[in-house]
């Protein structure tokens, strides 16, 4: 897949801030960054408040998604340009939602908010108010989403990629190292999952590595690109980043994101768990 059909540079973004039919959207878990200053004209999506179901452990359904996009003033024909903090984790997660619900033209800003800030590009704290639209979302495209039974069936037959840090994979840590470690679930990884931390795909400034570098990383780790792949992490947003790399940048055909991820798998009764730095074997 051509990189420029799914990714824009910060430079392109700055030159197209006022382009008709282009909507910039900042996606973060903590929107205080947006409130303090955002790309001029960008609307915000709050990962937790806007994109997660408030009651069930699931994300917004088709109706909720179309209500949300309508309220934000996003139309079906708009080119949606997503960016965010945390090296675009949450923007990649939102990108996955937009694809799940069938949006036509959606792209990420390469490097996200970090690259924009490090470049010293303009930020604005002005309120952004776009006229409401009547957005129509498609039914969820389940070919992009893995559930726990898909993961169980993939052990020993498909690629499983664990994109968390090596210490989380091995079971030495239960959460990323910027978060307190209290958790109830078991540590470790899904047996046979390859460890390829999401961060291997990104440069220090948050931009994606080149296609050749990316191919070398995943092939070198043992990914068999003739087989389907399921990526997971702890809650599904770091694995959206890897899902984006494998499907959208490298063009792998069958790649799913397991958004239940380790917080679900590590709490399930009766499923296999592997500890240590090696993938382990199918039982």
């Amino acid at each position: 897949m051509a990189r420029d059909s799914v990714l824009v540079s910060a430079d392109w973004a700055e030159k197209n801030l006022d382009a008709p039919g282009v909507v910039f959207v900042e996606v973060d878990e903590d929107t205080s960054a947006y409130d303090g200053g955002h790309i001029p004209g960008a609307v915000k999506l709050d990962w937790k408040k806007d994109l997660q179901d408030p009651i069930r452990r699931d994300f917004v359904n088709q109706q909720q998604f179309q209500d949300l996009l309508s309220a934000r003033g996003i139309g079906n024909d708009d080119t949606v340009i997503l960016y965010g903090g945390n090296n675009n984790w949450f923007a990649a997660y939102a990108y996955w939602y937009f694809k799940l619900y069938g949006h036509g033209d959606v792209k990420l800003i390469d490097g996200g908010r970090k690259k924009w800030e490090l470049d010293g590009r303009p930020l604005s704290a002005d309120l952004v108010d776009r006229p409401e639209t009547s957005y129509v979302a498609q039914p969820q495209d389940k070919s992009l989403r893995a559930f726990r039974d898909d993961v169980l069936a993939a052990i020993g037959s498909s690629n499983l990629i664990d994109v968390r840090s090596p210490d989380e994979y091995a079971g030495r840590l239960l959460a990323p190292a910027h978060l307190p470690q209290e958790q109830a679930q078991r540590a470790g990884h899904v047996p046979t999952a390859l460890s390829v931390p999401w961060s291997k795909a990104a440069n220090e400034d948050g931009t994606f590595k080149s296609d050749d570098e990316l191919r070398e990383i995943y092939n070198g780790a043992g990914l068999d690109d003739s087989k389907p792949t399921i990526a997971y992490c702890r809650i599904g947003e770091r694995s959206s980043h890897t899902w984006f790399v494998l499907r959208e940048l490298l063009g792998h055909g069958d790649v799913k994101n397991y958004d239940g991820s380790w917080t679900e798998w590590g709490s399930l009764v009766g499923v296999p768990v592997a500890l240590g730095d090696e993938p382990g074997v199918a039982e």
């Binding site: 878990e29 903590d30 452990r57 978060l179 307190p180 209290e182 809650i235 709490s267």
Partner: peptide, 22 residues
Amino acid sequence: MSVNIDGCGAPDQAAPIPASVD
């Protein structure tokens, strides 16, 4: 204990260490 399914985004870096951290 509950499973913490907060996002992986960074918490406020200026806030005191949460009381729950031992």
